[in-house]
Design a protein around this nucleic acid. Sequence first.
DNA 1: GATCAAGGAATTTTCGAAAATTTTATAAAT
DNA 2: ATTTATAAAATTTTCGAAAATTCCTTGATC
Lengths: 239, 239
Amino acid sequence: MSDDRLPEPRPTTQAVAVYDLMRRDIRSGALAPGMALRTELLKTRYGSGVSPTREALARLAAEHFVTAEGKKGFRVALISIEDFKELVSIRRELEARALQLSITNGNDDWEAQIVAAFHRLTKTSPPGHILNPVEEEERERRHRDFHMALLSGCKSRWLLRFCEQLTAHLERYRRILNPQSAISTGDGEEIEGEHRSLMTVMINRDADEAINLIERHRNRTYNVILGRFDAYASSVAAE
Amino acid sequence: MSDDRLPEPRPTTQAVAVYDLMRRDIRSGALAPGMALRTELLKTRYGSGVSPTREALARLAAEHFVTAEGKKGFRVALISIEDFKELVSIRRELEARALQLSITNGNDDWEAQIVAAFHRLTKTSPPGHILNPVEEEERERRHRDFHMALLSGCKSRWLLRFCEQLTAHLERYRRILNPQSAISTGDGEEIEGEHRSLMTVMINRDADEAINLIERHRNRTYNVILGRFDAYASSVAAE
DNA sequence: GATCAAGGAATTTTCGAAAATTTTATAAAT
DNA sequence: ATTTATAAAATTTTCGAAAATTCCTTGATC
């Protein structure tokens, strides 16, 4: 008898479910930087007891999405311009390396995954449109998946994990500081064009051009966000 | 009144204490790869209830020191030659970058920290000696601190965190696969000389030479460990 | 008015037991 | 003999309450 059943979805624990939801809410900015994560709040928000909640917090603390302060509970990690610059700088280097390695090591299946991810991305409403939260979340997911697909041929789980974590933190900065246009900071068509070009040069194995493109793709958003820090700082101070 | 009291040691939670102990035991190999981390075992070993224990496990899972499998509990993360090579490869790049940045950004205080860390390291018994577990642990700590001090001038917390995590995982490989000589794989005096040279070139701000030295320093251990994987694989299979 | 102490409320952390799930053992059926 | 089903045991996960800690208010003192 053939044994090619679907890979059974491991029954997930409640702690992991809360972790996923909370990570999503921190990424989106729904849980604001500095916000105290009280047990009551979390219990009602995620409909769960304190044990799963605290496990989720512990994991998020290890990933620096939240901070744990002695016996005074947890807070959403603060954001700062210094942290942002660090993230951008190290992400630039790791992503460039991962792109190179992907181009070297990627196989047909990798190419197919890029094409598929690009297709899914184009099927969402383009950035700039007003999206409801669910649509926005879905678009973010597809955007993430596309960019990770580009890197996924690199055959280094560690490198991939680091890129994923850095990207997640930067997504938070983008969505908090540039909340208008969900994904990026330019014209929707232009951005789709950039994604298409990225796909093309990756599959053509043109590493130099890929790094050029990703650099430009990132830089626009980078500058916009940088420019909004002042406004953000005063809006926070006003509270 | 002057207010330069000692920075108050935040009262730490039991969960964090268990986390520290467990991380130490995984690093040292006391908790072997693949070992099931049953609640009873952990409760007695670390003298704590299940809640702090599970929080510690959640954090360690986020750092990939343990794996969580659905509702079947936690295990110490497995080791593999592929994972080892990945770790070495990415660590090489990140450490080189951090050394460069340290040389660019490091100030007098950074230099002083290196000198201090080197001094502390020389005051432990050299590698090769038979040490009891407490002494071994102390030597490992000082060795870590020295190498991290070299990088600590880089002014990028993210880069530093990644280096720390990679080093921790590699320490585990070294101590499991090369348990005889605690720190490294060569003559004690030779290794102390290497550390001294590293210190010197860093303070002299010779980035190229620093990267050369660290490369050689790492490579010796790397090759020894690589050579012991076969023996390890069969010793595990024999169980 | 400012500082400090004490008491009480709010909150975090931890424990112990209940609930849910997985694993193991046993027996029946093909 | 191998599988299948069932029950018991072991284990993980979750809940709810107790213990510990922090925070805030109030009032006394200087």
